[in-house]
């Protein structure tokens, strides 16, 4: 489970560094490069919350 939480947290680290440097298509009114970066920031939260859920350290702390 610890390995799974590490993998989950590393996905957005790779994603946010893969810049797609183009203006079009506009998504939600934003140039694509900006939409892509903001999406990865939001996905970072999603993946870290998933990592938080499966992280055995949190369960140990709750029990203690």
């Amino acid at each position: 489970m610890k390995k799974l939480s590490v993998i989950l947290s590393l996905i957005p680290a790779i994603g946010c560094l893969m810049v797609i440097n183009r203006v079009e298509p506009y998504v939600l009114g934003l140039p694509f490069v900006l939409f892509w970066q903001v999406s990865w920031v939001i996905l970072t939260s999603v993946f870290l919350l998933l990592a938080y859920k499966v992280d055995p350290d949190n369960k140990e702390e709750s029990e203690s």
Binding site: V6, Q37, T44, L48
Partner: peptide, 21 residues
């Protein structure tokens, strides 16, 4: 212009999650 997207830094949070506890 768009170089300002460096303010969106996913690394801040991933480093925080693993190093701060």
């Amino acid at each position: 212009g768009m170089s300002a997207i460096y303010v969106f830094n996913c690394f801040f949070f991933i480093v925080a999650y693993w190093i701060l506890p």
